[in-house]
Simulated assay, not measured.
Amino acid sequence: MTRKNYIFTSESVSEGHPDKVCDRISDAVLDAFLAADPQSRVACETFATTDRVVIGGEVRGPGEVIQRVEEIARECVRDIGYEQEGFHWANMKVDSYLHAQSAHIAQGVDKEGAGDQGIMFGYAVEETDALMPAPIHYSHAILRRLAEVRKSGAAPDLGPDAKSQLSLRYEDGKPVEVTQLVLSTQHASENQTSDDIRAIVEPYIREVLPEGWLTKATEWWVNPTGTFVIGGPDGDAGLTGRKIIVDTYGGAAPHGGGAFSGKDPTKVDRSAAYAARYLAKNVVAAGLAHRCVIQLSYAIGVAKPLSIYAETYGTGEVSEEVIEKAVAEVMDLTPRGIRDHLQLNRPIYQRTAAYGHFGRAPEVDGGFSWERTDLVEALKSVIG
Score class of each variant (00 low, 15 high):
residue 42 V to F: 12
residue 142 I to H: 02
residue 120 M to G: 09
residue 117 Q to H: 07
residue 17 H to Y: 11
residue 177 E to A: 10
residue 110 D to G: 11
residue 112 E to M: 10
residue 203 P to C: 04
residue 108 G to C: 14
residue 164 S to T: 04
residue 365 D to G: 05
residue 307 S to L: 15
residue 239 L to P: 06
residue 245 I to N: 00
residue 58 E to A: 01
residue 150 R to T: 07
residue 347 P to F: 09
residue 52 R to G: 01
residue 46 T to S: 12
residue 48 A to V: 05
residue 164 S to Y: 11
residue 83 E to I: 13
residue 216 K to C: 10
residue 290 H to Y: 04
residue 256 G to D: 09
residue 313 Y to F: 15
residue 158 L to W: 09
residue 244 I to D: 05
residue 157 D to G: 10
residue 319 S to G: 14
residue 13 V to Q: 13
residue 17 H to A: 12
residue 314 G to M: 05
residue 44 C to E: 08
residue 198 R to I: 00
residue 250 G to D: 15
residue 366 G to S: 11
residue 2 T to P: 12
residue 197 I to R: 08
residue 243 K to H: 10
residue 300 I to E: 05
residue 25 I to N: 04
residue 260 F to T: 03
residue 103 A to Q: 08
residue 79 D to K: 15
residue 104 H to K: 12
residue 309 Y to R: 08
residue 162 A to P: 06
residue 134 A to W: 01
residue 44 C to H: 04
residue 331 M to R: 14
residue 364 V to K: 08
residue 381 S to A: 14
residue 119 I to W: 03
residue 58 E to L: 05
residue 95 D to S: 13
residue 215 T to M: 01
residue 180 Q to W: 02
residue 16 G to D: 03
residue 71 E to R: 13
residue 130 A to V: 07
residue 98 L to C: 08
residue 321 E to H: 14
residue 355 Y to P: 12
residue 14 S to P: 01
residue 295 Q to K: 12
residue 10 S to M: 05
residue 235 G to F: 06
residue 241 G to W: 12
residue 149 V to G: 08
residue 188 A to P: 06
residue 172 D to N: 12
residue 340 D to Q: 13
residue 6 Y to W: 10
residue 86 G to S: 13
residue 240 T to V: 10
residue 180 Q to V: 15
residue 231 G to F: 00
residue 194 S to M: 06
residue 92 M to P: 03
residue 127 E to G: 13
residue 374 D to F: 10
residue 46 T to W: 03
residue 127 E to T: 07
residue 316 G to H: 04
residue 184 S to P: 06
residue 28 A to G: 09
residue 73 A to D: 04
residue 46 T to V: 14
residue 59 V to D: 05
residue 321 E to L: 11
residue 90 A to S: 15
residue 53 V to S: 04
residue 132 M to T: 02
residue 128 T to M: 10
residue 64 E to I: 01
residue 382 V to W: 13
residue 272 A to S: 07
residue 313 Y to W: 11
residue 349 Y to P: 09
residue 55 I to T: 05
residue 30 L to Q: 02
residue 151 K to E: 00
residue 143 L to H: 07
residue 125 V to D: 07
residue 59 V to N: 04
residue 293 V to K: 05
residue 195 D to H: 01
residue 1 M to R: 11
residue 136 I to V: 10
residue 380 K to D: 09
residue 60 R to S: 14
residue 214 L to C: 12
residue 136 I to H: 05
residue 368 F to I: 05
residue 177 E to Q: 11
residue 236 D to V: 10
residue 7 I to G: 00
residue 375 L to T: 12
residue 284 V to Q: 02
residue 257 G to K: 12
residue 136 I to T: 08
residue 382 V to C: 13
residue 163 K to G: 14
residue 133 P to K: 10
residue 59 V to T: 14
residue 134 A to Y: 11
residue 350 Q to L: 11
residue 357 H to T: 08
residue 30 L to D: 00
residue 322 V to G: 02
residue 355 Y to W: 10
residue 43 A to P: 13
residue 364 V to Q: 12
residue 42 V to I: 15
residue 109 V to D: 01
residue 365 D to T: 03
residue 154 A to T: 05
residue 284 V to N: 07
residue 192 Q to E: 07
residue 308 I to R: 14
residue 235 G to R: 02
residue 163 K to Q: 05
residue 279 L to M: 09
residue 18 P to L: 08
residue 192 Q to L: 11
residue 112 E to H: 15
residue 50 T to L: 09
residue 295 Q to S: 13
